[in-house]
């Protein structure tokens, strides 16, 4: 008969027992069990935050979390996905914000109800130290908050656990936006590149490309020079006249 026999394991989806082949991700296991994703699935690559999942293991009081698309189903998991958790988002006019902690306090004063229970950090499937991020925000350190919250994928699991009823992921997103747009030092080379574009440095190249026939354009594309994956910082294309540094020189 078959050389390989697939081992089946029991998992419990919303309390219902299913036998699924060992080694599947939770997401594939759910599909194997007959579930069809309308919500709760996006990128299947661990980055969109749509597939937040919580589970327990019999005999253990703890609550665990996973991204369904990234985590292998284990025997006896009692799980459910939590594709969405209500969390109030406050809109604001970004241009009006000043990049000060009070921007955040005014929009999300409930963050001051945090009791440092750490339930948020413990549940986070991305290992964001959510409690510490909220602590940084409470003491006005937007930069630290933005860096520590960088891995957040907005799955909402932290908010589902919050004793303070605070929408941590919206708060952290605001911190990242304030940092990125108002606090981080502006990269000088970006400004220079933008100026080069405005000054028309690349216009001849664009003019040339837009006047080409489709056939020539395809050929040009296929034959274009590609930076080797192993290239170091010193790598330069053969044609250097479009490089910014040439222009700035």
């Amino acid at each position: 008969m078959d050389a390989v026999e697939t081992k089946m394991i029991p998992i419990y989806i919303m309390g219902q027992r299913y036998e699924v082949p060992e080694g599947l991700t939770i997401m594939k296991a759910m599909e194997y069990a007959g579930y069809q994703y309308v919500r709760g699935c996006g990128c299947r690559g661990g980055i969109c935050g749509a597939c937040g999942t919580i589970y327990r293991i019999p005999g253990d009081y703890k609550i665990y979390s996973a991204l369904a698309c990234q985590t292998a189903a284990e025997p006896d998991m009692y799980l459910t996905q939590l594709p969405f958790f209500p969390a109030n988002h406050v809109s604001s006019d970004y241009a009006e914000l000043e990049g000060v902690p009070e921007d955040i306090y005014k929009l999300y004063p409930e963050l001051f109800r945090c009791v440092a229970c750490n339930a948020c950090s413990k549940i986070c499937p991305m290992d964001v130290p959510v409690m510490d991020v909220i602590a940084y925000i409470k003491r006005g350190d937007i930069e630290k908050a933005a860096f520590e919250a960088f891995d957040c994928i907005q799955c909402g699991l932290c908010t589902s656990r919050c004793f303070a009823e605070a929408p941590q992921f919206h708060i952290m997103q605001l911190a990242r936006r304030l940092y990125g747009g108002k606090l981080a030092p502006k990269a000088q080379h970006n400004a220079e590149a933008a100026k080069a574009v405005r000054d028309g440095k690349f216009n001849p190249m664009l003019d040339q490309l837009t006047s080409m026939s489709l056939e020539d354009l395809k050929k040009e594309y296929i034959e274009r020079e590609i930076e080797p994956e192993t290239a170091g910082d010193e790598w330069k294309p053969k044609e250097t006249k479009w490089l910014l540094e040439e222009y700035l020189r």
């Binding site: 009791v115 510490d132 602590a135």
Partner: peptide, 21 residues
């Protein structure tokens, strides 16, 4: 590493939640 201490002591005998911070 530190977090907000909670600023006010909780006076309730049956409340440990606010002693965590």
């Amino acid at each position: 590493r530190w977090n907000c201490c909670g600023t006010v002591f909780s006076f309730a005998d049956d409340d440990l939640m606010h002693q965590i911070a």
